[in-house]
Design a protein around this nucleic acid. Sequence first.
DNA 1: GCATGATCATGC
DNA 2: GCATGATCATGC
Length: 451
Amino acid sequence: MEGTAYRTKGDVLRRAQEIVGIPLKEVDASGRLATGKGAIGTVIEESWFGYSPNAEAEPDFPEAGVELKVTPYVHGKNGIRAKERLVCNIINYMEEYDRTFQTSSFWHKCNTMLLMSYEHRENVPKGDFRIDKAVLFSFPEEDLMIIEHDWETIMQKVRDGRAHEITEGDTLYLAACTKGANASSVRKQPFSDILAKQRAYSLKSTYMTQILRKYIFGIEEDERIVKDWHALVHASFEEHLIERLSPYYGKTQRELKQLFGIEKSPKNLNDILLGKMLGIHGRIAQTDEFKKAGIVPKTIRVRRDGTIKECMSFPPFDFIKLSQETEWEESEFYNYLAPTKFLFVIFQENANGELVFERVQFWNIPVSDLEEVGRVWKRTVDTIRRGVVLRETARGVSNDLPKQSESRIAHVRPHAQDGRDRAKLPDGRMMTKQCFWLNNTYIAEQIRQPK
DNA sequence: GCATGATCATGC
DNA sequence: GCATGATCATGC
């Protein structure tokens, strides 16, 4: 039997649903499960559907027009979450740039996907995993507006001869993630002699998390910022959001509070103000679009002299897990920082010491700076593996992790609740929890407006 | 003055 | 209980 034995979407779906609940070791006829990455998908293609991976440009079931995707999820502390991004086909920069989204290789191959999900459990053999849901997925119209724009963003860089500057954070749902044996997997691009990293279309893990929650587990939808997707026909999501917020530019925090009848000054005041300015009920970070794109709002306070008071922190890291990481592009921090789009909410201190809502700016880290953060990451991993040097000093316990003075962009610093908030080092000693930070001077540089 | 280390407050 | 955003304290 071949992939062509399944003529319709219904045929494919019926066969897919018959695998639900069966341990994969009972499906695997050829002992392929033991092999590396992608083994689970291959086993299902070969041993369950009975076809071998086919010509790359066509969907797995050409006649039915369905692409098979086996995708893992995990139970995180905030519920179900996609374990990783969903990787689709490799982008051929030489051929793709003069197409439209509708004639793109991505749309041709992936417009309808059979999503088969399984729970990935740590330290459990793959053979014990089982598919627990199989659904046919086609993109909702409101998502397609954003995805089409994402595709255009990626292609515009190719058309500008800047394929080597593409990065996941450029886009919202559909991203171009690196794909290859290693960092030296590169390809030609049409309008520059510079070789660009090989990349594939992918759906961000934040997007997949929402798709899993909604389509696989039936968890309720979130409030949308854009109520009618037609608003995105002539403007990108980012432009649309800026358009809705710009009437409030120049108002002080006090004026905004007054305008929206807020009396107290809670810690999350700026979050509340953003929600009010957009006319939504909840917090901006909890909206459909922000959750799918994984956009992280960050408040930035600019002093009168243009400097920024504070550096930007990220989630604390686990010393032991970090010490076991080997590749920058597979590290936890890369997989957070590279695909994340930030919404900088910029407040400027005025002559009276009041905070003026200056503007918002979408930002993601550029590729070259990401490489520099990679060097800081490497230095951190090496230092922890070798054994951090801790020394009691007059103002606390000093260490030899990367300092702000060592890099233009990033450093490592404590981020803990109090003196007892410590974590274990690989050698058993305890140390105040640390995280990666972006330097305040770097952030100042990134929000500087071209004159 | 600022980098570095530390800690507070709040919400989930 | 802990992450997260915010901010402090001080010695180099």
